[in-house]
Design a binder for these strands. Structure first.
Length: 474
RNA sequence: CGGGACGUGGCGCAGCUUGGUAGCGCGCAGCGUUCGGGACGCUGAGGUCGCGGGUUCAAAUCCCGCCGUCCCGACCA
C-alpha cells in the first residue's frame, strides 16, 4: 500500500489520503467520483449534525425533483440576472424521446419558486421554512475531489417571509445557528463568518453570507453559504401574497446550503502526514480495538477481553478489528490513516496487568489505562480530541493571518506562507480586481455587520470603507 | 477553450535520447518462518507498451494523426 505523500505535495497529499483512506473512488469520468462507505458515513454524520440544527430552528424537510420541465426556465430567465438554472437539457431518456424536454438542476430555485407560487397566497402562508437534502449537477471547468465535483450532494434551505427584516434574520440564523454551530462543534473546523462582496455574490442575491475556513495548505475554503434574496426570485416567478393590510406584496426570500465539500474540508483542515484526523463527533469509528495475540490460547483470552471492553464502551462507536490476515502494526497504520480518534491495544501484556493501552490519534502517545477506569478515560480522550482538533486548527489559522501594510507585502505573504490577509478596502471593484489579477487572492469575506474603520485601502491608499480578508481559495 | 506534462501487468513507476521483441516496487497465488508499529524468505501467475497509420529486416523506443488523463487559467458549494 502506498503511503500518503508529504504535506508539501498538497493537494496531492489530499488526493492520496482520499484514496488510501477509502473515502472515494476518484474520477470515474471528468469530475465524478464514487463515494465509498467510509466516506459516506462521514457525510451521514455531517448530515445528522446539520439536520438536527435545521429541525431545531423550526425548518422542515421536503423534496423537489432533480429534473424539471424546460418550460419553467423561459419565464424566470428574463428576470433574475446572471442566474442560470439549467446544466443540460434532456430530450431522451430510457431509449425514448421525451414528450417534454427536462432540465437537470444545478440548484433548485427554479422548481422551488414555481412551486411556491402555488403555495403562497396570504401572509398566513408565511413563513415557509423548507429544506431539502438532494443532489445537483454542475459542469465545473476544474473539478476537485469532494471540493468541486460534477455531481454532489447537498442540503439547500429555501424560505419565504413576510418582511425583509425577517428574511435577513433568517439568513443569519442559517449561517450562525445551523452552519457555524455544526461546522465548529461537530467538524471541529473553525470558520470566519461574513459577507461576500458584490463580485463574489450568488447571482440573484441581495446579500451573500459565507463561512470561510483555512486549509492546511493555507488556502481558504468556503464551507457554507447563506443568501438573502430580497424579492428577486418571488418577483421573477410572480409570487405574491395578500398582506395584513390587504395589499399585495412579493415575499422576501433566503436560500442557503452546505455540501459534500465539507468532507473534503475536514480532510484538508485536520489531516497530517499519517492521514486523516477525524473529530470524534464525526468519526464513523470513534474507538478501534486492536487485539494482539500469537497462540490460539492467547487469541481466545484477548478476544474475550476485547469483547468486554467493547461492551463497556457501548455508548461510543467502537469497532474490534478481529482480522487475522494482517498484523497489528498494519492495523495501527491503517486506522491512523482513516482518522479514528482513539486506538486501544489489548494483548497478553495488558491482560496480565488488567490494563488496556490507549493511543489518541491527536497526540500519538501511548497510555496504559486500568480496565476499571476505561470508560471514563475514553470519554475524556474523545472530548480532548474533539476540542484539541478545533484548537489546533484555530491556532494554525491565527498563525497564518496577517495584516500587510500594502499590496506588495500582501503578495509576498500570500506567496509564503499564505493564509488570510486582513486590511482596509476602499470598496471599489477596481481594487478588488487588481488584487485578484496580481495575487490570485480574492476577498473571502467582509465583516458580518459593516462597521466604519479609520485607515486606508491597502491597494489604492484611499480612505477604507471597511476591513476585508483576502486569501487564495479553492 | 488557451498554456504545460503524461498514457507501459491491479496500483505506482523505469526503459525511449543512442530501435533488437519488456523490467522494478507494491499488490496477488502457494509453502515456510513470523505476529506489541505498515514482516521476511523461496517459488509463481499476470502486460495486443492508450488507439490508428507510417519509416525500418526489426518499433514501447523514430515520424504523423486521433483519443484519454493530470497540472496551471477562465467557471465555482
Amino acid at each position: 500500500m502506498a503511503l500518503p505523500r508529504q504535506r508539501d505535495d498538497f493537494p496531492g497529499w489530499y488526493q492520496e489520503v482520499v484514496k488510501q483512506a477509502q473515502l472515494a473512488e476518484p474520477s470515474l469520468a471528468r469530475g465524478t467520483m464514487v463515494i465509498r462507505p467510509y466516506g459516506y458515513a462521514i457525510w451521514e454524520a455531517i448530515q445528522r449534525a446539520v439536520d438536527d440544527r435545521i429541525k431545531a430552528t423550526g425548518h422542515q424537510n421536503l423534496y423537489f425533483p432533480l429534473f424539471f420541465p424546460y418550460k419553467l426556465l423561459e419565464r424566470e430567465a428574463e428576470h433574475v440576472e446572471g442566474f442560470s438554472p439549467e446544466v443540460a437539457v434532456v430530450t431522451h431518456a430510457g431509449g425514448q424521446e421525451l414528450e417534454e424536454p427536462l432540465v437537470v438542476r444545478p440548484t433548485s430555485e427554479t422548481i422551488i419558486w414555481q412551486t411556491y407560487s402555488r403555495w403562497i397566497q396570504s401572509h398566513r402562508d408565511l413563513p415557509l421554512l423548507y429544506n431539502q437534502w438532494a443532489n445537483v449537477v454542475r459542469w465545473e471547468l476544474r473539478p476537485r475531489l469532494f471540493l468541486r465535483t460534477t455531481e454532489f450532494l447537498w442540503q439547500e434551505g429555501h424560505t419565504a417571509h413576510e418582511t425583509a427584516d425577517e428574511a435577513i434574520a433568517e439568513a443569519r440564523t442559517a449561517l450562525l445557528d445551523i452552519y457555524r454551530d455544526a461546522v465548529e462543534n461537530v467538524l471541529a473546523m473553525p470558520v470566519h463568518v461574513g459577507r461576500k462582496t458584490a463580485a463574489e455574490r450568488f447571482p440573484g442575491a441581495v446579500e451573500t453570507l459565507t463561512l470561510e475556513a483555512l486549509m492546511r495548505d493555507r488556502k481558504a475554503l468556503q464551507a457554507g453559504t447563506s443568501h438573502y434574496l430580497g424579492q428577486n426570485f418571488a418577483r421573477a416567478y410572480g409570487v405574491q401574497f395578500q398582506t395584513r393590510t390587504g395589499d399585495l406584496d412579493h415575499p422576501y426570500a433566503t436560500s442557503w446550503g452546505v455540501t459534500t465539500r465539507l468532507v473534503g474540508g475536514v480532510i484538508m483542515a485536520h489531516g497530517d502526514d499519517r492521514g486523516l484526523r477525524l473529530p470524534p463527533a464525526l468519526a464513523p469509528v470513534q474507538v478501534v480495538v486492536v487485539p494482539i495475540f500469537r497462540t490460539d490460547q492467547e487469541r481466545d483470552r484477548v478476544l474475550a477481553a476485547a469483547g468486554r471492553v467493547a461492551a463497556d464502551l457501548a455508548s461510543h462507536r467502537v469497532r474490534v478489528d478481529e482480522r487475522e490476515d494482517v498484523r497489528p502494526g498494519f492495523k495501527f497504520n491503517e486506522w491512523e490513516l482513516r482518522g479514528v480518534p482513539v486506538r486501544l491495544e489489548i494483548g497478553p501484556r495488558d491482560l496480565d496487568t488488567d490494563r488496556v493501552t490507549a493511543v489518541p490519534r491527536l497526540t500519538g502517545e501511548k497510555e496504559e489505562v486500568p480496565t476499571a477506569s476505561l470508560p471514563g478515560r475514553i470519554g475524556e480522550l474523545l472530548r480532548e480530541s474533539q476540542v484539541g482538533l478545533l484548537d489546533q486548527a484555530r491556532e494554525f489559522r491565527e498563525r497564518h493571518t496577517f495584516r500587510p501594510k500594502d499590496l506588495a507585502e500582501m503578495a509576498a505573504l500570500l506567496d509564503d506562507p499564505g493564509g488570510f490577509m486582513v486590511g482596509g478596502w476602499c470598496g471599489s471593484e477596481e481594487c478588488e480586481a487588481k488584487v485578484k489579477a496580481e495575487t490570485k487572492a480574492t476577498i473571502r469575506f467582509l465583516p458580518l455587520d459593516p462597521e466604519p474603520v479609520h485607515g486606508s485601502c491597502i491597494v489604492c491608499g484611499q480612505p477604507a470603507a471597511e476591513e476585508a480578508a483576502w486569501a487564495q481559495a479553492y
